[in-house]
């Protein structure tokens, strides 16, 4: 005979256990829904509205998007962003790989190098912007000080469009090559040694070993590192905000800065929202394409 009390207790236990995963997931998921997912949807909605002085006036459908793709300022900003990301990531990959290869054999001093290389990655990005302003400034800058110490004149970087852009790329390379280096070094150290040793025994030089063996084995890790870094570089904001705020003219005006100015300086909220939605879609398309390519490469 079943005593109702015991049975109820057991049922209750089962019921609670069945509900436990939902209770565990709920707080985090609810917060993310409110603070990340809802804003994504809200941004989508805002992008179809016309705003005046920060207040929605009327629905305009896709007008903001149509305006976006015929706006020379946006197209220039997109071009600046793409060239910035491409050049910075390319340089970081090459330098990071070279440094990782150089460090793949243990030697004294490598620990010091790895420790020091952490600094650029963890320093507050705003401060990185300040660091490079202090280097480039024509009056107080390090370049000017060195140039004057050697008998030259003041060096002008941030007032010149091309030099300011190069200066921004140099900043990013300084800040993020260490990350490339660390990822690729870990990748190199995880490779099997036998094929490399065998090739070396067969008389292959270091360059041949790298081209025929190391690089093919390392390729998936290089690809992942490039994808991670590209996604990250695409959203660069803090450093540019401090270094040039997009100037001189529009020479370093990345999409993030253009969008920020459009929204918070010129109060064109709907137009800026359309810009940010477009930006999100570009990075999403890039990531999906990259993941598909990586998967295909992994299976073949």
């Amino acid at each position: 005979m079943n005593r109702p009390g015991v049975r109820k207790e057991r049922l209750q236990g089962a019921g609670l256990d069945a509900a436990l995963p939902y209770f565990m997931l709920a707080p985090g998921v609810l917060l993310v829904l409110l603070v990340l997912i809802y804003p994504l949807w809200d941004g989508l909605r805002a992008s179809t509205m016309f705003y005046r002085f920060g207040n929605p006036v009327r629905k305009v459908g896709f007008d903001n998007y149509i305006r976006l793709w015929s706006d020379p300022q946006f197209l220039n900003s997109l071009w600046v962003t793409l060239t910035f990301v491409a050049s910075a990531v390319a340089i970081e990959t090459v330098l990071g790989l070279a440094l990782a290869l150089f460090c793949s054999h243990e030697f004294r001093g490598i620990r010091l190098l790895r420790t020091i290389l952490i600094i650029p990655m963890v320093v507050t990005p705003v401060v990185v912007g300040i660091v490079f302003r202090l280097i480039y400034a024509s009056d107080a800058g390090m370049l000017t000080a060195f140039s004057e110490a050697l008998g030259g004149g003041a060096v002008e970087i941030l007032g010149h469009p091309v030099r300011a852009f190069v200066g921004l790329v140099v900043l990013d390379v300084w800040e993020w090559t260490p990350l490339m280096f660390l990822i690729l070094l870990a990748g190199l150290q995880s490779l099997p040694i036998e094929p490399l040793e065998a090739a070396r025994v067969d008389g292959a030089g270091p360059w041949r070993v790298f081209i025929d063996h190391t690089f093919p084995m390392l390729r998936p890790i290089i690809a992942v590192a490039i994808v991670l870094r590209t996604i990250d570089a695409f959203g660069t904001f803090d450093q540019v905000f401090v270094l040039t705020h997009g100037g001189p003219g529009e020479a370093t005006r990345l999409l993030s800065i253009f969008g920020y100015d459009t929204a918070f300086k010129f109060q064109e909220t709907g137009y800026a929202a359309a810009l940010f939605v477009t930006m999100g879609l570009i990075i999403l398309a890039f990531t999906l394409a990259a993941v598909r390519l990586l998967k295909r490469a992994a299976t073949s």
């Binding site: 993310v32 409110l34 603070v35 990340l36 997912i37 809802y38 804003p39 994504l40 809200d42 941004g43 805002a46 996604i231 695409f234 959203g235 904001f237 993030s256 969008g259 920020y260 929204a263 909220t269 800026a272 929202a273 940010f276 939605v277 930006m279 999100g280 990075i283 999403l284 990531t287």
Partner: peptide, 19 residues
């Protein structure tokens, strides 16, 4: 949640401000 990490935070800057 993983896909959300790919989205650059700047994309939700305006709606988060409004929220």
């Amino acid at each position: 949640l993983l896909i959300l990490r790919i989205v650059p935070p700047v994309v939700i800057l305006i709606p988060v401000y409004l929220l």
